[in-house]
Write a protein that binds this DNA or RNA. Structure first.
Lengths: 332, 332
DNA sequence: CTGAAAGCGCTTACAG
DNA sequence: CTGAAAGCGCTTACAG
């Protein structure tokens, strides 16, 4: 069905499209008489007028669209971020496009192109490995972009992140002080800087201790399987051991392994896991976890992108939030 | 930075914008010489041309945008659906707008308006209670809409759903045959038809049995708390009891209660839960659950909306998928 | 094989 | 207080 346009209103109300536009946009300066104003409003209402934002976007060179690119929207972590971003973006009048790139630089590139073609005013991205080139290209075009969660080593971009290294160091310190025989770090075999930071923080603290440690690195595919086989190989229950899972997915896979093997927490092994997820709450022992201030991060990312859209500045600021260690009963 | 347009290409390549448009769109019929074609392609490449889909949308009255409205994108169930929809939509050249309405008809309305203004070609929606009016308005405009997961009682809309009543009846039957003293249905205090169907299916089967039953209905807010207090009131461990949680959120809340109370499954109580969620995998006992074919549903919903966009038909078809009972060890 | 022109639905500087 | 007109970046029927 053909939608009503400003032209239809103008025709019916017997005024010009300019006048209709002025009235509909409630411009302060425009001095339209109450009579015509009311007539226009009535007609708009009666023919069920819905403004065509695409036409407006074209004219204004502003789409009021924001693109969000994450690794996978079905991951708890990102869907929670997406939800908060959605709410904040909406408050500022933006609508959200969402895309998942599965850690795949090709898909990532595709999404940036797609969003760019759809004329999003800006993008909030969690960049993947090997996305530097694509992003540099966007930066050269002065496309407003902010990062969330992740950041790039060789590209300076405004964004929000947490104190990955510090919090990891803190967790390690916490464990070191508990006098474990061995502490196992479970991380990803990746080049993503924020994850390397977590590993570095851990390494830094462990190096200063006398505690024996192991680092298990997992590929991003087949997480569940790989975590299980590698824990099988590395977990020595004769030692007093603590395991530090550096992401929610690793944590879930690890916890599942412990359940399967009937290993009790914290009696036989202690553990800490990164991120917060409903799943942790169903584990028989309350899981000590590291909580990222997702809501605040999301809110700040929207604030940043909005200000970049409003007034682009190269090398915009990077905001670091503090993750919080939520101590529960999974560490003895 | 000003983006390059077709006009820039035309100017540099010394051809008309029409010719550029033809080349860029690789139209079969258009017989442009290889020479000019190559020149145009080269220029486009060199000035980093990105097509403006908004201009194209305006001209074509097709935005290649699809809106998805769910209750909450941070809910596992919906984020999984969203992910599959995203992938399928992308394959057909659509980009996805996502909105969460929190079961709030006002927000739902707002989202439909927003999406409508953004000229989405169609919407995939999980309608909320009291959204009939808004939806009827959209139907009157012949706006392509398909439902997913949910449906409306008094409004006929194409969409995908599962056999809620049947599967519930089946689950109840399964439990009845196991000779429990009491079976507790945990559901929502709601008017959402698909949830009432689950309840009806259960009731239908239980009525034909001699098993004692209880129905616990929970408000959509404070789920965790309410599930716990109501289970506390209603669960009588002296009886051989089975609990049927009719959604993932209810299941998670219920499982948490059982953990807190140290009630072992299936020794002291048996249970079945609707939907699939990572969380179930961390429960000490493997949870028997009802799996919805989310991927197939998502895929079909995209297929339906695409065909509605292509060729609008009132009273489009409703596709019912079959949920699957995944029997694990939580029922004795 | 290629181009001039109209038009999609808006906004806004300018004129009156 | 109101309107005519230009223009945002495209597509396409038509003409040549």
């Amino acid at each position: 069905m053909k939608r009503a346009s400003i032209k239809d209103i103008a025709r019916i109300a017997e005024v010009s499209v300019a006048t209709v536009s002025y009235v509909l946009n409630k411009k302060e300066g425009s001095r339209i008489s109450e009579t015509t104003k009311n007539k226009i409003l009535e007609v708009a209402e009666s023919i069920n007028y819905i403004p065509n934002k695409i036409a407006k976007s074209l004219k204004m060179s502003k789409s009021k669209l924001i693109g969000l690119i994450v690794a996978d929207i079905s991951n708890d972590f990102y869907s929670n971020i997406a939800r908060s971003i959605e709410d904040e973006a909406m408050k500022l009048g933006y609508t959200l496009l969402i895309g998942s790139c599965d850690e795949n630089p090709e898909k990532f590139k595709k999404l940036t192109e797609l969003f760019s073609e759809q004329q999003v005013d800006g993008m909030i991205i969690a960049p993947v490995v090997d996305s530097d080139e694509v992003i540099n290209k966007l930066i050269k075009e002065e496309y407003p972009i902010v990062t969330i969660d992740r950041y790039l080593k060789n590209v300076s971009l405004p964004g929000v992140m947490i104190n990955n290294s510090e919090i990891s160091e803190y967790i390690c310190d916490h464990l070191v002080k508990k006098d474990f025989d061995e502490i196992i770090y479970v991380g990803y075999d990746t080049e993503l800087p924020h994850l390397l930071d977590r590993q570095d923080g851990f390494d830094k603290r462990i190096a200063k201790s006398k505690v024996s440690s192991k680092t298990i690195l997992i590929g991003i595919h087949n997480i569940t399987e790989e975590v299980q086989t590698k824990l099988e190989e590395n977990l020595d229950l004769s030692k007093k051991t603590a395991i530090y899972f550096s992401s929610n997915k690793l944590g879930i896979a690890g916890l599942r392994y412990l359940i399967d093997k009937n290993i009790s927490v914290p009696e036989q092994v202690s553990l800490v896991a990164f991120d917060e997820t409903e799943a942790y709450y169903l584990f028989p022992t309350e899981v000590s976890f590291i909580q990222q201030p997702l809501f605040d991060m999301a809110k700040e990312s929207v604030k940043l992108i909005d200000s970049q859209i409003d007034n682009y500045t190269p090398n915009g600021k990077r905001v670091t939030f503090h993750a919080k260690f939520m101590e529960r009963s999974s560490v003895k």
